[in-house]
Simulated assay, not measured.
Amino acid sequence: MKDTVTSTDVQNQIIEAFEFRHAAKVFDPERRVSESEFGTILDAARLSPSSFGLEPWQLLVVQDPDKRELLRPFTWGASGEMNGTEGQLRTASHFGIFLSHTGATMSHESDYPRQHAAEVKKFPAEFLDGFHAAYSKFRTDDFKIESERETTDWAARQAYIALGNVMTVAAMMGIDTCPIEGFDADQTSAVLEEHFGIDPKLYRPAVMVAFGYRAGPPMFPKTRRGMDEIVSWF
């Protein structure tokens, strides 16, 4: 008789993964995430939802040690300087940088939203005008996304959805992660332009994330607010 995976089993696996996950400050440099496992992580990012389905982010996977070193002087959240280690940049199996799109592509006046709807989402031609009108209303009337900074921040929020999903999927496979906001965004953007060929008019760094296997146990136990402190029922 085949084993049956129940809903309770899945629920337990999910909670175990969230209990397992912590922001790993340093990884075991001798252990590598397999190509197959990292492919699943990338698929989790690719299949993540986004506002209007526009996927306004890109992901750089930085594996070249020399290129990682370029980030160290201003990426204090991954350099190890906060805890006296080699940090995530030097020890992670894989290191990613989520880039958010800017107003150059995500304005309702730019070509990208309509092109994406037609070529990626495969919307019929007769739907495109309605889609574009809804997106324009959302930006100008509903959320009042007007400035370049507001547009980039909105795009970054979509990247964070993918970030959360890749960390959860990694945890379910026993792979450690660490989301990283400890970096100078302007200096990162300058290095990305000079050494990675990333046009700062089109993309801005939103958040970094490291993957690997923890070098030791978490420094502190996991603590969170109680359910009654975060959820209100009406």
Rank of each mutant, 00 (worst) to 15 (best):
D3W: 12
T4N: 14
V5G: 07
D9E: 12
I14C: 06
I14A: 06
A17K: 12
A17W: 13
F18I: 06
F20P: 01
R21M: 07
H22M: 00
H22Q: 02
H22P: 00
A23G: 08
A24E: 05
A24Q: 10
K25L: 08
K25I: 00
V26S: 05
F27A: 06
E30G: 15
R31Y: 11
R31S: 05
V33R: 12
E37C: 14
F38A: 13
G39K: 15
L42T: 07
L42D: 04
R46K: 09
P49R: 04
S50W: 10
S51N: 13
F52W: 11
L54Y: 14
Q58D: 12
L59T: 02
V61W: 08
D66G: 15
D66N: 15
K67V: 00
K67T: 04
R68A: 11
R68Y: 13
E69C: 06
L70E: 09
L71G: 04
F74A: 09
G77P: 03
E81A: 07
M82K: 12
N83H: 11
T85R: 06
T85V: 03
G87C: 07
L89I: 08
R90H: 05
R90M: 03
A92R: 06
S93H: 07
S93T: 07
F95Y: 14
G96I: 02
I97S: 08
F98T: 03
F98G: 04
L99T: 03
H101I: 00
H101S: 12
G103I: 11
A104M: 13
M106R: 15
S107E: 08
H108F: 02
E109M: 06
Y112P: 04
Q115P: 03
A117V: 06
E119I: 05
V120M: 02
A125M: 04
F127L: 03
F127K: 04
D129H: 05
F131G: 01
A134N: 02
Y135G: 13
K137W: 13
K137R: 15
F138L: 06
T140K: 08
K144N: 15
E146Q: 11
S147W: 08
R149N: 02
R149F: 09
T151W: 08
W154I: 10
W154G: 10
A162L: 06
V166W: 10
V166G: 05
T168D: 02
T168C: 08
G174H: 02
D176V: 03
D176N: 11
D176P: 03
E181R: 07
F183L: 01
D184H: 09
A185D: 02
Q187R: 10
T188G: 05
V191G: 00
G197E: 05
D199E: 14
K201R: 14
R204M: 11
R204P: 05
R204Q: 13
A206C: 06
V207P: 00
M208G: 12
F211E: 05
G212Q: 12
G212K: 15
Y213H: 10
A215I: 04
M219K: 03
F220Q: 04
F220C: 00
T223D: 00
T223R: 04
R224E: 00
G226S: 07
D228V: 08
E229C: 10
E229G: 12
I230G: 00
I230F: 09
S232R: 13
S232F: 11
W233H: 12
W233G: 01
